[in-house]
Design a protein around this nucleic acid. Structure first.
Lengths: 112, 112
DNA sequence: TTGACATGCAACTATATGGTTGCATAATAG
DNA sequence: CTATTATGCAACCATATAGTTGCATGTCAA
């Protein structure tokens, strides 16, 4: 999970995913077009995305074709993020309780 | 968006969110319990979570109470991740096309 | 006022990260 | 075979990060 979040925590890598979202099967050189960094830098970013399993590759001769793999995102959304979605109401309730608590003009810690 | 992903790309910070999910309104000292690092280290992690707006704080006297704020996660999931979720079928199709292409025993780049 | 408690701020260290450059290797074209 | 193309590997550098420690500030209790 750390790998996935870390991979997504970079604008360049998110742009690479955008590019692969628009068109799958691009080579490293294809993906370098329009990026203000060297080919090796892009290759490193793609390596990080591969390690996070967000990008799958497929060799064809001497060219490495890259594809977006959306499965890890789905996993994270369903297994981890959903729980925090459920926390919305609980969080609001906590907040409300706390604010009411704070309204009391600082006497004792509420003894009632 | 980078801030949120970066904040989530750390196991300690995700554990802090878990703790706040279980129980909102904990102080820094509360959250330090059971963590194998110094209070200041935990404070830094909480600072990063605050900057990412994943944690909201509320001062009460000399103690700072922390609350989980699940809204940024929901935003990201709906605005950004959802699009890649939709890409599942497209990605599979790309892959299938590519594999079929590759089956051909390396002649020309398909001229038909 | 004094002491204890909760937190913040600053300096420092070790390591990770994002970028660079140069060279090596493998596959295709002629 | 030779040249070109596509990629990989390794060294290097600047900065960011995660952790530490020490001290300062602000609040509560007596």
């Amino acid at each position: 999970m750390t790998d996935v979040f870390h991979a997504l925590a970079d604008e360049s890598r998110r742009q690479l995913l955008d590019r692969l979202f628009e068109k799958g099967g691009q080579s490293l050189n294809d993906l370098c077009q329009g990026f203000p960094m060297s080919r090796q830098a892009v290759a490193k970013h793609l390596g990080i995305l591969e390690k996070a399993n967000l990008v799958s590759v497929h060799w064809q001769g001497r060219t490495k074709l890259h594809y977006l793999n959306p499965l890890p995102l789905g996993d994270i959304v369903h297994r981890w993020v959903g729980k925090f979605e459920d926390a919305r109401i609980a969080a609001l309730t906590d907040f409300k309780d706390q604010i009411e608590e704070d309204q009391k003009p600082k006497q004792e810690k509420r003894r009632a």
